[in-house]
Amino acid sequence: MSILVIGIGNQFRSDDAVGLEIADSLSTCELEEVTIQRSSGEGIALINLWEDFDHVILIDAVNSDREVGAIHQIDLSKDKLESDLFQTSSHLFALPEAVKLAKTLHKLPKTMQVYGIEGENFDYGTELSPEVEHAKIELIELLKADINNIKTYTS
């Protein structure tokens, strides 16, 4: 059993940094048997990161028509990842493409959960919007529970 958590984002693009900030917070929690990584979201690097793990959790900012701070949860064993959700990346080959390519090459882990926080401001800056900050704290607790669940059902 191996668990990887990847926070994705750009720390200088306001709400886009939320995935990285969550990864940083989880790094200080000393979670056993959990590896935490930060990523800019470049797709091939993501596949390289997750290919040796059984259980992967990804966290990124998203941009859809839901209210700011809304938490999206996508279980890739059941749900499809809509490319439109992750338009915040400037990468040509980002998370949605990485998931599709990994699926084709049988490089998806046993389980993969994608969490997104609806952002509002993706301009240059280093502050999160208040709603995103609030959602960040909520998601950190959700993730700790999620990680414990993975440990329980795999042990």
Partner: peptide, 19 residues
């Protein structure tokens, strides 16, 4: 590359490992 990987997975896998 996703379409390419369907027909030629060995090519794309080699690229991933090299990168």
């Amino acid at each position: 590359a996703i379409q390419l990987a369907k027909d030629h997975p060995e090519v794309v896998n080699e690229g991933l490992r090299l990168k």
